[in-house]
């Protein structure tokens, strides 16, 4: 059945290169999460706004992000914006696509988290002399993040997995991109991608366990 000899040595020799790719993968994922969280909070607040325009913009963002494929969103950033004269290289396009996706999903998570914070707390804070922004920043936000920490961890893992789509728009510096470069040079597809899969698995596990450790430190009271 197997008319094929596995060659693991060249694939293992490429490990340092692939680890460098893994660093880029992590960079993209972390960046997209940080920007995504910032936009997500704004969108979640906008969805509860009194003004219809804000609510409209926020729900449009959330629904498009949630109801179209991530790859489509990356294509939009890479090919679509090009027609408007905005030429993003594949790194920025991938980052933009994932960030757009993250922000949409996180906004929905944060909206649930905001609901978990009782309204009375805001009133209590305001009557103690907090400004509206300070009440949100110091009273609501910490409790909200506590409620949504676990879903946020999941989103981080998804962000890591989504970075693999960069190769489709020609990114060759992240883990999948580096692996694909090696693959087209050697045609040892299975060996190289098996190692990439193991690396992704390890990264995902480190992030999950790390997040659990952080949650334990932050929320143990």
């Amino acid at each position: 059945m197997f008319n094929y000899t596995f060659h693991w040595r060249p694939a293992l020799n490429a490990l340092p290169q692939m680890l460098e790719g893994a660093v880029v993968t992590l960079q993209i994922a972390v960046l997209s999460m940080i920007i995504g969280i910032a936009i997500g909070v704004v969108l979640a607040v906008m969805q509860g706004s009194r003004f219809r325009v804000f609510r409209g913009i926020a729900s449009a963002w959330v629904e498009v992000a949630r109801n179209t494929p991530a790859l489509f969103q990356i294509y939009m950033a890479y090919f679509g914006l090009g027609q408007l004269g905005i030429h993003l290289d594949s790194f920025v396009a991938l980052l933009a696509g994932i960030t757009f996706n993250n922000a949409g999903y996180l906004a929905e998570t944060f909206r649930g988290g905001l609901r978990a914070v009782p309204r009375t707390q805001v009133r209590a804070a305001r009557s103690l002399g907090f400004g509206a922004f300070d009440a949100f920043r110091l009273i609501v936000m910490p409790q909200m993040f506590r409620a949504v920490f676990h879903p946020m961890t999941n989103q981080m893992v998804w962000a890591i997995l989504m970075t693999s789509l960069g190769v489709i728009v020609g990114l060759n510096t992240d883990l999948t991109g580096v692996t694909q470069e090696l693959n087209v040079r050697t045609f040892r597809t299975f060996e190289y991608f098996a190692i990439a899969a193991v690396l992704y698995y390890i990264i995902a596990k480190i992030v999950t366990l790390g997040a659990r450790g952080i949650a334990w430190r932050l929320f143990k009271y």
Binding site: M1, F2, N3, Y4, V157, L161, M162, T163, S164, L165, V167, I168, T176, T189, F190, F193, A194, A196, A197, Y200, Y201, A204, K205
Partner: peptide, 23 residues
């Protein structure tokens, strides 16, 4: 859990390569 921790794209590439290897 492995299926949820490895990118789907990698799974597709691996499976496709494997079916070619296994004939």
């Amino acid at each position: 859990d492995i299926f949820r921790s490895v990118p789907l794209l990698i799974q597709l590439i691996l499976a496709n390569a494997f079916q070619a290897i296994a004939g």
